[in-house]
């Protein structure tokens, strides 16, 4: 099939801003975007820079934006990406500075991985043999360790775009891998650190990382699991955890959300500064008649909801 690749180029030595090059190729159906880019590099334009190695989605080198979202070029079949006019747009990953063409700077990515103390810290000396642990726990870990650190999730993370300090999905999924490991002895310390600013509570649950992860690691689900574990072991004195508790309390008592209480309870009832911060927003809403009912009345059926809560909450 005939495909036209629109590739974003940047050469730091050329002294000019980024631009796009167009390459039209005739390629077999089974070709991936990587196959095509390599053909460009070999036969058309040797100056095109990209990282790649394994061609089978295991080394994590070739993540890039294809039609605006992060994908592994080696896992992206051309037939799934070509537009009706046969065009595919290829650009470097997002949220990372560009070094040359499709090659991005990944140092910040790795420094975040490093920030979660990414190695097993067992309690006490290792046993003489392997740790005796359930297979299910190892399969759960293998699911996260499927992560190849390609950066797709970080590239498209919507929080990172507005806040460079966010630990971001890859590092947090990595952190989960240790917290969930029955062999690790410092899970609680890990959860304490992760509950701080820039950690698990700053994720906005946008599912971009779940969507873009080429290895089904579902980083966001791991972040949510970390939140649950953090609350479970008692790291509840933070706004994220209070927010979660507040929503649960509201649904439990009335069957639905009390939009007025949630922000107040989340900030903390004695967090005067935050509460004052709500005033202008509340005032504007009040003027427009956009304020939820001041008296939050239970929905019909609230009793039933409450019983379900009571039944399922006690277990913990």
């Amino acid at each position: 099939m005939q495909v036209s690749f629109k590739v974003r180029r940047f050469d730091p030595e050329a002294g000019k801003p980024p631009y796009y090059d167009q390459y039209t190729l005739d390629v077999p159906d089974y070709f991936t975007v990587l196959d095509a880019l390599l053909q460009v590099r070999d036969e058309v334009d040797g100056s095109l820079a990209l990282r790649c190695s394994c061609r089978s989605a295991i080394c994590g080198s070739c993540a890039m934006h294809i039609n605006g979202h992060a994908h592994l070029a080696c896992k992206s079949r051309i037939q799934n990406f070509a537009s009706k006019t046969g065009e595919i747009v290829v650009e470097p990953m997002g949220n990372m500075p560009v070094i040359k063409d499709l090659v991005v700077e990944m140092k910040p990515f790795w420094s975040k991985v490093q920030a979660v103390t990414p190695w097993l810290i067992p309690e006490g000396p290792p046993p003489q043999r392997e740790y005796v642990v359930p297979n299910s726990a190892m399969l759960e870990l293998a699911g996260v360790m499927n992560c190849i650190m390609c950066g797709c999730c970080v590239s498209d993370c919507t929080v990172l775009t507005v806040d460079k300090s966010f630990l971001a999905p890859a590092a947090l999924a990595k952190a989960y891998r240790f917290v969930a490991d029955p062999r690790d002895g410092v899970s609680e310390e890990r959860l304490r650190e992760l509950s701080k600013r820039s950690g698990i509570w700053d994720c906005t649950r946008c599912f971009e990382c779940v969507q873009q992860c080429p290895k089904n690691v579902a980083p966001m689900e791991r972040i949510l699991a970390l939140r649950a574990k953090a609350m479970e072991v008692g790291f509840t004195n933070n706004i994220g955890s209070r927010h979660s508790e507040s929503i649960a309390r509201s649904v439990k008592h009335s069957g639905w959300l009390d939009e007025l209480r949630v922000p107040i309870e989340s900030a903390g009832l004695f967090n005067i500064k935050a509460l004052i911060g709500y005033i202008p927003v509340g005032f504007r809403a009040l003027v427009k008649g956009k304020v939820p009912p001041i008296i939050h009345r239970p929905r019909p059926g609230a009793d039933s909801v409450k019983r379900i809560f009571e039944k399922l909450e006690v277990r913990k």
Binding site: P127, E130, V132, V133, M138, A142, M145, R183
Partner: peptide, 20 residues
């Protein structure tokens, strides 16, 4: 191999929790 396991490699296990 035991050392790798102790470092954190999540080798699959048998029913009894030992290396499969």
């Amino acid at each position: 191999i035991i050392e790798l396991e102790n470092m954190g490699v999540a080798f699959n296990r048998r029913e009894d929790g030992k290396l499969a």
